[in-house]
Design a protein around this nucleic acid. Structure first.
Lengths: 228, 228
DNA sequence: GATCGTGGGATTGTTGAACGATTCTACGAT
DNA sequence: ATCGTAGAATCGTTCAACAATCCCACGATC
C-alpha cells in the first residue's frame, strides 16, 4: 500500500540523481557563456578545454552536444564548436516565438491559480525597488523573472524549459549589445502597466501592451546588434 | 562585391553539409521509434544496437543524446536509454503547450502572407478527400500538417522546430493508444469549421474552436492512455 | 513465507590512445 | 593579387580497457 508521506520524498529525488560528468561540464560551461566570460564567436577547443577540466574528449563532446541543443554553442562539421554569436535574424526569430508564447500564456490569466498570478506580480515589484536604487543589473534579472512567470501561466513544463533556453539565448544577445540601461528604464513602468491592467481584469489590453513591449524590445535589441 | 545569384546557391547548402554518423544513426532510430517498431518502454542496449549498426558505442551514445533531447528516448543514469512511454501527464503537458502555441500563432492569421494561410488550408482539403476514401492513416497525417502550418504562422523557425519535436512525441502517444479512428472522424469537420471561420475573418471564433478541439483531443487521448 | 543481505554477471560511465578525414595556415608559383 | 599545395592542427570515429552501477538469483534470517 502506498503511503502518502512517501510522495514528499520525491522532492529530494533531484539531489540523488547524480549528474553525469558531461552534465556537470555542460553546466559549468553554460555559466561561463552566460557570464560573457566565453565571448560569442569564440571557438572551444576540445583538447584545450578537456585538458583544463580534466575530462576526456568524448565526455567533453557530450557536453558540447547538450549546449548545442540549448543553442548556446554552434557546431560546425570538422571545424569545432563556437559560442553562438546571435544575429539580428536570431533575435527577430526569438521575439516572434516570445510574442506567441507569452501572449498565448498571458491570456490564461483568469484560468490559473492565484499562486501563479502572484508569481508574476512579485518580480515587477522587485524591479521597481531595484530600479529606484539604480541597480539595473538586478532589475534586469527581475524583468526576466516576470516574463518567465508569464510563460508559467501556460502550465506546461515542456514550455517552461523551452523558454528558459530561449531566455538564456537572449542573455547572450544582451552580452553582445552592451549598455542597454536606457532601455531598461522604460520597461519597468511598462511591466507595471501590464500588471495593473491584469489586476483590473483587462486581459486583452494587457496582451496588447505586452505585444507592444516585445515589439519595442526587439527593435531596440536588433538595432544595437546590427549597429556593430 | 557580392553578386545576387550567389544567394541562390545557399539552397544547396544543406546537401553539402554531410550529416555526422551520430546524426544518421539518430535519424534511423527516430524512424523506427515513430513507426512503433521500437515499442515504448523498450530498453536500447548500447552493445546490441551498436553492433547491429556497425558504429562504436561512443557514436551511438551521441545519437542517443540527440533523441533524448527530442524526448523520444529517456535516459536513466547507469541504466540505459528507453523508448519513451508517454503518460497521461505527458499528454496533458503537451496539449497545454499546443494550446498556447497554436492559439497564439492562429491569432496572427491576418498579419501573415497569403502563402502561409494557404499552406494551412491545403491540408484540410486533403484530409477531407482522404477521409472520404476511409484512408484514416493519411488523413491523420494531413491533420498533423494542418497544425504544423498553424504553428508556422508565428514565423519563428525556433518555434517550428520545437513543435515538430512536439508532434513527434504526440505520434508516440498515438502509437500507445491504438484504434483512434473514431476520433479522427470528428476532427475533419472540426478543422473544416476552423478554416471557414478564418476565411470569414472571424479569427477569435476560430481560436475558440481550436481550443475546444484541443481540449477534446487531449481528453480523448488521455482517457485511452490511462485506460490501459 | 516475506523480507533482507550478498554475492556474481551484465551494462553503463569514462578514459586514453590511435588513425583517417577535414580544415587551416603559410609559403611559394603563376 | 590570386591560386595551388604541403604540412600542421584539429575534428570524427573507433577500439579497448576498467571502475561504477545496476540487476538478478540464491540463501539467510525472522
Amino acid at each position: 500500500m502506498t503511503e502518502t508521506w512517501v510522495s514528499t520524498l520525491a522532492q529530494g529525488k533531484a539531489d540523488l540523481e547524480r549528474a553525469s560528468t558531461a552534465q556537470k561540464v555542460a553546466d559549468m560551461l553554460r555559466e561561463r557563456v552566460l557570464d560573457g566570460e566565453l565571448a560569442p564567436g569564440l571557438r572551444l577547443s576540445e583538447e584545450a578545454i578537456g585538458g583544463a577540466l580534466g575530462v576526456s574528449r568524448n565526455t567533453l563532446r557530450e557536453a558540447f552536444r547538450l549546449l548545442t541543443r540549448d543553442r548556446l554553442l554552434v557546431h560546425e562539421h570538422s571545424r569545432g564548436v563556437f559560442v553562438r554569436r546571435p544575429t539580428g535574424d536570431d533575435v527577430r526569430d526569438l521575439y516572434a516565438a516570445r510574442r506567441v508564447i507569452e501572449c498565448g500564456a498571458l491570456r490564461r490569466w483568469n484560468d490559473v491559480t492565484e499562486a501563479l498570478r502572484e508569481a508574476a506580480r512579485a518580480p515587477v515589484r522587485q524591479a521597481v525597488t531595484r530600479a529606484e536604487k539604480n541597480d539595473w543589473t538586478r532589475a534586469g534579472q527581475a524583468n526576466i523573472q516576470f516574463h518567465r512567470a508569464i510563460v508559467r501561466l501556460a502550465g506546461s513544463e515542456r514550455l517552461n524549459e523551452e523558454s528558459d533556453r530561449l531566455f538564456a539565448e537572449l542573455m547572450l544577445a544582451f552580452n553582445v549589445a552592451q549598455e542597454i540601461n536606457d532601455f531598461y528604464q522604460s520597461y519597468v513602468p511598462w511591466n507595471l502597466r501590464i500588471v495593473e491592467l491584469l489586476n483590473n481584469g483587462e486581459v486583452d489590453q494587457a496582451v496588447g501592451q505586452l505585444t507592444e513591449y516585445l515589439d519595442a524590445a526587439e527593435q531596440d535589441l536588433v538595432s544595437r546588434l546590427e549597429a556593430q
